[in-house]
Write a protein that binds this DNA or RNA. Structure first.
Lengths: 66, 66
DNA sequence: CTCTGATGTAAGATATAAATTACAAAAGAA
DNA sequence: TTCTTTTGTAATTTATATCTTACATCAGAG
């Protein structure tokens, strides 16, 4: 469940708390997603992508190989 | 939760049952996802994309506007 | 018409994403 | 050093995705 959420969030100079509020979840949920320990819902992934100005593919598609 | 799963599955000449087995869920789950009534997990979306030879964006990103 | 494969859908059970609360541990600013 | 912000993480609870079983429906083949 590796992804580019953490690196993208930091590039956007956002805290976990700020991102969490924008997408409507808690800071802990963001932390676990960044750590790769959650299997988030599609809707949350879409909200994350929009908040970070990325697409689903850029955040979650074949992250290991890029 | 609109998506392109159903049209892509039909283009690939697959039944719900065949797709379900490939991605490791039940036929009912595929049916509900195609109907837009589920908010599937990211891992399931990735499995669907790989089984259908598409990316996440092609199946789930801004489906309403394309 | 019947028969079969494919699909729609519903009820109840289970698994797990996500919330809530809480506390500890970093890291930076003063 | 202390103070504050940010992050890591754990326990418990809640919400919901998914499974299981089941039955109805629909389309096509015979």
């Amino acid at each position: 469940m590796k992804n580019n959420v953490k690196i993208t969030r930091i590039k956007n100079s956002m805290t976990q708390e700020q991102l969490a509020r924008q997408v409507g979840v808690t800071r802990q949920t963001i932390g676990l997603i960044e750590k790769g320990e959650y299997n988030p819902s599609l809707q949350l992934c879409i909200n994350l992508a929009k908040s970070l100005n990325k697409t689903l593919d850029e955040l979650f598609w074949e992250v290991d190989t890029q």
